[in-house]
Simulated scan of single mutants.
Amino acid sequence: MYEPIRTKSVHSTMTGTPSDFPHRSREEELDIQLAGHLAALLAVTDELRATVPSAELDAAARRLADQVARLRGGSAPARLSATVPGSDPAALHQRAQALAGRALVVAASRADTAAAILSAERIDAHTAALRPHALAAR
């Protein structure tokens, strides 16, 4: 029914067999994933700041940048410097809310309290920002 595999696997499955590709621990993988989610959330937050400036978004962006730098070993994240024409604040808040949710899941599985608290706060903030849009749509 299936054709047998005729080549050796590129992944070594035998104990003690040296491997020629780098391995990362689960914690390192979660750090990378969490930093990615927080960096994406930072990008959306920067876009929101350019569209609808606020001191609360400025503070959130600073905290997000600090967390990304911490997870990346001190490397500062890239920041958005210009606004995207025609950005819809409601759509940006929805995207930020989803990204914060993903970050919260990874932070919880990594047991990173600081990132989990920040992610939960961002979910709450974006949910609150979406309420007026939801009432206007009715």
Rank of each mutant, 00 (worst) to 15 (best):
L57G: 03
E29V: 13
H23F: 11
A50F: 11
T7S: 09
S25V: 06
Q97K: 02
R79V: 12
S87W: 07
A115S: 14
P22F: 04
T83N: 09
P85A: 07
A100Q: 04
V106D: 04
P4R: 12
P85H: 03
S109P: 04
E56H: 11
D88G: 05
S25D: 03
D20S: 13
A137H: 09
V52Q: 09
A43H: 01
D112G: 07
R110D: 02
S75H: 11
R70Y: 05
H37S: 02
D58G: 05
E27S: 11
L42M: 01
L30F: 15
V52G: 05
L48Y: 05
L38A: 03
L130R: 07
R138A: 07
E56A: 12
L135R: 12
L92I: 03
E3I: 14
R95K: 11
R62C: 15
L104R: 13
T51R: 10
L30V: 08
L130E: 11
E56I: 13
R95V: 06
E29W: 12
R62H: 15
A39P: 00
A128S: 11
R63P: 01
L104G: 02
S75P: 08
A136G: 06
A134F: 02
L92K: 03
A50Y: 06
T51Y: 09
T15V: 11
D112I: 02
G101Y: 08
P53T: 11
D46V: 00
D66I: 15
Q97R: 07
A115P: 03
L42Q: 03
T113K: 14
H37N: 08
D124S: 07
I117L: 15
A59W: 11
R26Q: 08
D58Q: 13
P4N: 08
V44I: 01
A137F: 06
A55W: 08
T7C: 03
G86I: 02
R131W: 00
L48D: 02
H93K: 14
R26L: 11
Q33P: 01
M1N: 15
D124N: 10
A35R: 06
A60C: 06
A100W: 00
R72C: 09
S81Y: 02
I5T: 04
L118S: 10
R72W: 10
S81Q: 12
L64Q: 07
L99P: 00
I5A: 10
S75L: 14
A65Q: 08
A91I: 10
A90I: 08
V52Y: 00
H133Q: 06
S54C: 12
G86M: 08
L71E: 02
A76V: 15
A116K: 10
A76I: 12
S54N: 09
P4E: 04
T83H: 13
E29T: 11
R72I: 10
S25M: 05
L104D: 03
S81N: 04
M1H: 15
R63H: 13
K8N: 06
A76R: 14
S19H: 06
V106R: 03
S87V: 06
L104F: 10
P53V: 02
R63E: 01
D20G: 12
M1G: 15
L130G: 09
G36T: 01
R131V: 07
R72T: 12
V106W: 01
L57Y: 01
H37K: 01
Q94I: 04
T17L: 14
G101P: 05
G16W: 08
A125I: 05
